[in-house]
Write a protein that binds this DNA or RNA. Structure first.
Lengths: 188, 188
DNA sequence: TACATCTTCTGACCTTTGTTAAAAAAAAAG
DNA sequence: CTTTTTTTTTAACAAAGGTCAGAAGATGTA
């Protein structure tokens, strides 16, 4: 849980009282790789800090899933759209590797927003960061070629390319696995 | 300014005291169509409520600008990435029509966050909404064809297609003006 | 009105990616 | 260590969009 406190402290000074409330809500969950955390159509009830694991977000498809995001250790993750709106999720979440998570429910978080000094500040900063990430991604999807996006991944997250099946990366980049295979051939 | 109060009240009950502080910061600005509000490379210092106007967000290019967003009356707008990070903007903002704006500076907003009950709540909800919008857009960019995105625009914002030059819409959809022209021909 | 400029459309050709199918390679299961 | 399943690669063809160039239409300005 130290990791989580550190994470919060990066955003705003956390009083002992606030940390006591916050940490009392966290529940530890462990699961195997390829575990579905949230099924499409279900309402997301959790915000999860990833102590260990890589997780993918995807829309399941007959042939190839549309994988549009990854989350890694040291971050919070959630089907945040569904979590915020409390409407059925349009996508699914799944662990890629064995996982250790610390989970908070929707109601827990509403309590935190009401009862702590820092809740709304952390919530605001978190949403702002998510916005910034999506914003960058939008520009990349409109501006860059699939090849450029692949090369960017290569430089920004070299371990990703080793750990994660190419077909998920292909989808994330916005092309079919066949097209990514051709891109890789062209580059090397 | 009533429009702005209504906007805030949709999110959270605003006390007279908070509204007094908030509204005291707002500065009215009027400008002609095709006015650049923020140049690329400058730091965004304003959050602007649009009383009247349509505004586009774009990365200027030699041949065709990359227009990736529009903002309309009744919303707040900003080069929010730059505003949040206080780093130079990677894109530009420009009025498409004559405009009436109510503007807040970055420092004003930090005061509001510190001094009001509602600041961080409104800030959080706003960032959450922006995240939701970008999230939907990401899925559309990865999932839908250019034709589908055009048809979606048609149904969701029919007035947009009349008011806004096609080349900007083409860019928003992710194709060249020529390609959009072909799509329109195919559809009709 | 006449001129200039900007926007939209059209056509020819090229490049990239999607699609289908199958082979090769790698990983998981027994 | 085999067998089975999954992942990655390759190839041939089709479809969509990019590029270049020019025509037609719309808008703005003197």
């Amino acid at each position: 849980m130290d990791q989580i406190k550190e994470y919060l402290e990066q955003i705003v000074k956390v009083s002992d009282k606030d940390w006591e409330l916050f940490s009392s809500k966290l529940k530890k969950v462990e699961c195997k790789k390829r575990t579905t955390l949230l099924k499409i159509g279900k309402v997301e009830n959790h915000l999860s800090f990833i102590e260990k694991s890589s997780i993918r977000l995807f829309i399941p498809k007959e042939e190839n899933d549309l994988t549009f995001g990854f989350c890694f250790k040291g971050q919070f993750m959630s089907a945040y759209d569904s979590f915020l709106t409390q409407l059925p999720s349009t996508y699914q979440t799944e662990t890629l590797t064995d996982a250790t998570l610390w989970r908070l429910t929707f109601n827990d978080l509403q309590d935190i927003y009401k009862s702590t000094e820092i809740g709304n500040i952390v919530g605001r900063k978190t949403a702002e960061n998510l916005f910034l990430m999506k914003s960058q991604r939008e520009q990349s999807l409109l501006n860059d070629t699939a090849e450029k996006r692949y090369l960017n991944l290569f430089t920004e997250r070299p371990q990703l390319i080793k750990e994660i099946p190419l077909k998920y990366l292909a989808s994330y980049i916005g092309v079919t696995p066949q097209a990514l295979s051709r891109i890789r051939k062209r580059i090397s």
